[in-house]
């Protein structure tokens, strides 16, 4: 019974949290710009509408193109089972943090190959940028995981991101946090690395890779991207935010996610996207911060 409830609440989080979080980001950006903005649940309505639509496939494409959306969503769903979304994760073992990072790599592999399958130069461009930036984001992610793992004594997400009594003063934790925040922005194609709302194919990264997907495929991709954002944000939230006894583990995570969505919205409203040649510099800075963090932990 207990397991059943855990799985049920997990499913609720996995299905509902991504669209709501994306909705809060959009709402925040609208509020800063002085607009009313679409309702918070708009991404959910979009997903439902897309699921009901048909699909147009390019004649150039093969089964590779159809594999992309389903495998990338499946990989993110599997990664979700490792993240303590409802107080505890579904599965936890020593070394699951590496699996978490590499499941995202699986998603990236199929998304990129699906993009290249269309034979479009725009999608090739997006794919090229995606792999370039993520291959620099990966060391930052794993090095910050390593420094957190050393503090907690095991390379398991549930241990590493256990709630603390308050913001840890340790310099290494702050460095890991900063590095993880940059990785979060890069992996989820947010400003300043990528602009999810741009309408110029030449400047996009993630969105341009999925130009040719439509209908249920696009719904899977959008939900997977949102879920990836929720997963990485909830790790950060668990690191910073103390668990509030009044609302419980789930409640404090949900509140934290909402607050993080507002922060991301504010970041996106207050700055422009970086020039593409500057992005590697930001990511290398994140790698350096993570390395310093690891070395400080080990001293």
């Amino acid at each position: 019974m207990e397991t059943l409830r855990l799985v049920a609440s997990y499913l609720m989080m996995v299905i509902l949290a991504p669209p709501i979080m994306l909705g809060i980001i959009t709402k925040t950006k609208a509020a800063v710009a002085g607009r009313k903005g679409p309702p918070v649940l708009q991404p959910l309505y979009d997903t439902i509408k897309l699921l009901g639509k048909g699909a147009v496939y390019s004649k150039t494409t093969t089964w590779m193109f159809r594999l992309g959306p389903v495998v990338s969503l499946a990989a993110v769903l599997a990664a979700a089972s490792l993240v303590p979304l409802v107080g505890a994760p579904l599965i936890a073992f020593n070394g699951d943090a590496i699996l978490f990072a590499y499941l995202f790599a699986l998603g990236r592999f199929v998304t990129v190959t699906a993009a290249l399958d269309t034979g479009s130069s725009f999608e090739g461009m997006g794919a090229s940028r995606e792999v370039a930036f993520s291959s620099l984001a990966e060391p930052a992610l794993i090095l910050s995981f390593a420094s957190l793992a050393y503090r907690s004594g095991g390379l398991s997400l549930a241990q590493m991101f256990a709630p603390h009594g308050g913001p840890s003063a340790a310099a290494s934790a702050i460095l890991a946090l900063g590095s993880l925040f940059v990785v979060l922005l890069a992996e989820n194609s947010r400003i300043p690395i990528d602009d999810p709302n741009t309408h110029l194919e030449l400047t996009m990264i993630h969105e341009v890779m999925v130009l040719d997907h439509g209908g249920p495929d696009l719904a899977f991709i959008l939900h997977g991207a949102g879920l990836k954002l929720v997963l990485m944000t909830s790790l950060l939230v668990r690191l910073i935010l103390p668990e509030m006894p009044a609302v419980g583990a789930v409640g404090s995570l949900v509140l934290g996610l909402a607050a993080a969505a507002v922060v991301i919205g504010l970041v996106e409203s207050s700055m422009a996207r970086l020039r593409l040649v500057r992005v590697p510099q930001l990511l290398v800075a994140a790698i350096c911060a993570a390395t310093f963090g690891l070395i400080l932990t080990l001293r």
Binding site: L51, G52, K53, G54, A55, V56, Y57, S58, K59, T60, T61, R66, P69, V70, T118, G119, S120, S121, F122, E201, L211, D212, G215, P216, D217, F220
Partner: peptide, 17 residues
């Protein structure tokens, strides 16, 4: 996806702006 799409699948050219 197969259930959702049914036979509403069309073939076209790759979108090239």
């Amino acid at each position: 996806r197969f259930l959702l799409l049914g036979d509403r699948v069309a073939l076209g050219a790759t979108w090239g702006c």
